[in-house]
Amino acid sequence: MQGLRKLFRPSWSSAVKLDDTTAVITGANTGIGKETAIDLSKRGAKVILACRDMEKAQAAVKEIIESSGNDNVCCMKLDLSDSKSIREFAEAINKNEPKLNLLINNAGVMVCPYGKTADGFEMQIGVNHLGHFLLTYLLIDLIKRSAPARIVTVSSMAHSWGSINLEDINSEKSYNKNKAYAQSKLANILFTRSLAKRLEGTGVTTYSLHPGVVQTDLWRHLSSPEQFFIKIAKPFTKNSVQGAQTTIYCAVEPSLEKESGGYYSDCAPANCSAAGKDDELAQKLWELSCQMLSITWE
């Protein structure tokens, strides 16, 4: 039934303008991040692309300006697998931007072979969760000063196959790339819930979402059988424009103004797994994240 309802649900659209607002989007040089940047630019926002590959980012900036007719688009270097890069990026934003109304934690790595970040974290939990956790922490004062503001974190329905291994969050004892990915996406949802509680009464709201099964570069690490399955499923998947809609919905939909901490899919509230609603687990993950990043964030 739910599938049928989704099929006949009218597609979401909104004429909300974002003049005089500033948005930072991580990993916005490709896929749904780039489509999100194009949409927000068309609405009049100043958009900062936070990207690891500056060559690709500069090409994306050009494309976004051409597509949106808004030349208030720029890119800055951000490598979420390196806390030094995250701190340098945040320092530059805090110094040069008078406000930050939208932080879109979009970048991610997916089912990659085992690897570690510059800080020694397993790559998927390191980039997808800890990198964005640190980035949000370093920008939170500016975001609060810019309220009303929103923090949108791209998760995935894959979170529902995940669990948080607090004893071995870096998968050092055993590594399964799919489980590590699912863990990192569950972490995104728990982070959003915890953050919402801490931001109550500040005018800053938070959202996590499943973009849909989107055809993106993230699939490059899938095995041959997985690639084959994806090819068969292609007619049922979304392109990047469709995949960006729920991110955009969470960023601009006026009816969400008083909502915070929730999980969304297909431009509507959605159910996350039981683990995704576990506030005790969320608190433990928050404390562990602070400890791993050597920060204090009450």
Results as ranks from 00 to 15, higher is better:
Gln2Asn: 14
Gly3Pro: 01
Arg5His: 14
Leu7Asn: 02
Leu7Lys: 12
Phe8Ala: 00
Phe8Glu: 03
Arg9Asn: 10
Ile25Arg: 02
Ala28Met: 12
Glu35Val: 09
Lys42Asp: 04
Gly44Tyr: 01
Leu49Asp: 01
Cys51Val: 14
Arg52Met: 13
Ala57Ile: 03
Ala60Glu: 05
Ile64Ala: 01
Ile64Ser: 04
Asp71Tyr: 05
Leu80Ala: 03
Lys84Glu: 11
Ile86Asn: 05
Arg87His: 13
Phe89Arg: 00
Phe89Gln: 00
Phe89Cys: 05
Ala92Glu: 14
Asn94Lys: 12
Glu97Val: 04
Ile104Tyr: 01
Asp119Val: 05
Gly131His: 10
Asp141Cys: 02
Asp141Ala: 09
Leu142Val: 05
Lys144Ile: 02
Lys144Ser: 06
Arg145Phe: 06
His159Phe: 02
Asn165Lys: 13
Ser171Ile: 02
Lys173Gln: 15
Tyr175His: 09
Lys179Gly: 04
Ala182Cys: 15
Arg193Gly: 03
Val204Glu: 00
Tyr207Glu: 03
Val213Ile: 15
Leu222Glu: 11
Pro225Phe: 11
Glu226Ile: 00
Lys234Ile: 00
Thr237Pro: 01
Lys238Ile: 03
Gln242Asp: 09
Gly243His: 03
Ala244Ser: 15
Tyr249Val: 02
Tyr249Met: 06
Ala251Trp: 04
Glu259Arg: 11
Cys267Leu: 00
Cys267Met: 05
Ala275Thr: 07
Asp278Glu: 11
Ser294Lys: 15
